[in-house]
Amino acid sequence: MAENRPHRFDRLPATPAEREVPGRATREGVVDFWAERYGVDPAVWDDYTFWEKGADKVWAFAGDVPTPIEVEALGMTFLRTGGEHWKPTTDAVQRFGRHATADDTVVDLSRERARHFLAGEDQELDWDGDWGYLVVRHEFGRRAEPIGVGLFVHGELRSQVPKGRRRKL
């Protein structure tokens, strides 16, 4: 049976029936996740292929190459499928969060709150929507623009902006 190897990217199988590595995500599962949780139209992914490098790290690539392939990067880091709840990356939310149409997993912050979020700070938030990983946006350049991923639990929005991307603006 095939195993996951580092530096090697394997295209995700289309459906669970085609899965060779136990527990690996599938294309179908990835597309369903974005549709069900964030309301992203599956057609957004028509030209995309999804890849795994190492365990539980899914990458999205806007094209196709032969699988497996050993390269430094293939498209962008996209989704962590390791924990109980799948977690989109900051890159994925910044790039594709604008396609999210759900109102219970997408939260809009004021500029002041957005600054705290970008700085990596947790904040209390009066929020009636879902718990878990949210797409966090603010109004910028006449648009509701995604900043990153927030984890909402127990009345608190916890910034998931990675250390290297945090800024104090």
């Binding site: 990067a73 293939l74 890159d91």
Partner: peptide, 21 residues
């Protein structure tokens, strides 16, 4: 230099790129 390339491509949301060394 590749790590700078990757972080710039990620910040720009580039998804059609294959990075090789």
């Amino acid at each position: 230099r590749l790590s700078a390339l990757r972080s710039n491509a990620e910040r720009c949301g580039v998804s059609n790129v294959v990075v090789t060394k």
